[in-house]
Computed example of a mutant assay.
Amino acid sequence: MGTILTFLIAQNSYSQQIEIIDSTIVKDNFFKSKAVRISSVPVLLLAGSAATWGVRKDVRELRNRYLPTFRYHYDDYLQYAPVATVFALNAAGIKGKHKIGRALVSYAFSAVIMASVVNTVKYTAKVERPDGSTHNSFPSGHTANSFMNATFLHKEYGQYRSPLYSIGAYTAATATAVGRELNYRHWISDVLAGAGIGILSTEVGYVIADRIFKEHGEHIKLNNNPIPVHLNPSFIELRLDYAEALSKDLTDKNSGLYAKTGFNFGLEGAWFFSKNVGIGAEFAFSSFPMNDDQLDFADPDILTVSDRFYTQPTLAFHFLKIGS
């Protein structure tokens, strides 16, 4: 039994579809509305935060077992890389979707919304950090900021010039989120919630700016997109799953050795040269831990050798996956 949370970066270059029924023009249904389009990914991330709340300590145990001394604070700086890229591209004369003045207004609204939501929840929920230093862990401010900045780059350049900007932006944001966990500053539920808040903040910031500026401040739409997404279905995907054992042999706690909740983490991407041929890679690992706290050793001499069983994650790395 499993629940899968998938974060997929994709774009659709088709214009809004209009259906004609009985000579009456009917706009797209609710699920294709703008409100749903801008909130679907944040809602999935927030749902993932809720779903992983009960297993966040299990994820922490995995970090403590394999990377207990990880202390590389790149996440303090990488969170700003996407927004710095926007300003650098503008300074170099590479135009984004909007003129810099309008883009700054959109970004300002996004930043105010993000900071307000994050700090309000932080000091209301008062969740203790994994390292026990403070009680403002949930949600992750670094992650919210990084995904807000990534969505800013995505909207200014990823949707306007090339999806490669979006891939780079969200890769940096994801690396920031992972860094917050590895540096023992946040739980997995914190970073998932932060990512959802960051994306939604930028989307709402742009909605507000669009209502203020309307058609003013936009650059002429480009017609020479070098990567037509509707023809080449390239993508990058972040996957997080959890699993529960169904067999009584694994779930019976009276046996002394029983299965705990397991999880899977994976990152996958593909680059398509044409509509049917592409190349990609996948990195994933799975863990299904066992609990032996109540196990009664028949031979006390065993305790001189080992006092605990450990289950190891299964690591999978696939490269150069060619499909058609």
Rank of each mutant, 00 (worst) to 15 (best):
P228K: 02
P228G: 02
P228D: 00
V229K: 06
H230F: 06
H230R: 08
L231P: 01
N232V: 05
N232G: 02
F235C: 05
F235D: 00
L238V: 02
R239S: 09
R239H: 10
R239E: 06
L240K: 01
D241M: 11
Y242I: 01
A243T: 05
S247H: 13
K248T: 04
D249G: 08
T251R: 14
T251K: 14
T251Y: 12
D252W: 12
S255M: 10
S255W: 05
G256K: 06
L257F: 06
L257G: 01
Y258T: 03
A259Y: 01
A259E: 02
T261H: 14
F263L: 10
F263W: 13
N264K: 15
N264E: 14
F265L: 11
G266C: 06
G266I: 00
E268A: 10
E268K: 12
A270E: 10
A270F: 15
W271G: 03
W271N: 03
F272I: 09
F273E: 04
F273K: 04
K275V: 04
N276F: 11
G278Q: 03
I279Q: 12
G280Q: 07
G280D: 08
G280A: 11
G280E: 07
G280C: 09
E282I: 12
F283C: 07
A284N: 12
A284T: 06
S286A: 15
S286H: 14
S286P: 09
S286I: 08
S287H: 08
P289V: 02
